[in-house]
């Protein structure tokens, strides 16, 4: 029996311990904001926060999550999350939107650790998140905007 905290609530899982966290979230917990894009940690669509740090849930066996704390797009909160989501909406970042949960999870983590990121900092944090619609320019802008509002 694997026990972990999901968006603040205690959860258990007693299925196949190899099951990636991604599918536990989506199929068992019905939290579908976290997306499947590649299954091999190349695209970042499945990004969640594991014990406060970004983690690609598609290559994270649930067995390794025992005792950990998981936060998904549905449960993310705090001033960074608010600032990021507001900034995303203000300049209409998403196109198809499928990758954006993962983008936002990475962006929030970046701002939690680096409140005033440079363009290089943004590249460093976000280069693992693919957006096939190539909304990258707006993602960069929105992160800067979010940083500005947090500062202000």
């Amino acid at each position: 029996m694997i026990t972990f905290k999901l968006n603040g609530q205690q959860r258990t899982f007693d299925g196949d311990p190899d099951t990636p966290l991604l599918w536990v979230l989506r199929d068992f917990e019905k939290l579908t904001g976290t997306k499947y894009g590649c299954g091999i940690a190349q695209c970042g669509a499945c990004t969640v926060h594991l014990d406060g740090m970004t983690r690609r849930s598609c290559i994270t066996p649930i067995a390794t999550v025992d005792g950990s704390e998981v936060v998904t797009i549905e449960g993310i909160e705090g001033k960074e999350a608010e600032a990021v989501q507001k900034a995303w909406v203000a300049i209409d970042v998403p196109q198809c939107g499928y990758c954006q949960s993962g983008q936002i999870m990475s962006a929030v983590s970046l701002l939690q650790m680096t409140p005033k990121p440079s363009d290089d900092d943004i590249d460093g944090a976000m280069a693992g998140n693919i957006c096939r619609c190539a909304t990258y320019q707006r993602i960069r802008q929105a992160i800067h905007d979010a940083a500005d509002t947090m500062e202000g």
């Binding site: 989506r26 939290l31 579908t32 997306k35 499947y36 797009i73 998403p94 939107g97 954006q100």
Partner: peptide
């Protein structure tokens, strides 16, 4: 004008087929 589908695409609530 702001896009109609932006908000649900920033909070994980947009329902794609996979969802």
């Amino acid at each position: 004008l702001p896009k109609l589908d932006t908000v649900s695409k920033t909070n994980g609530k947009a329902v794609f087929t996979l969802d």
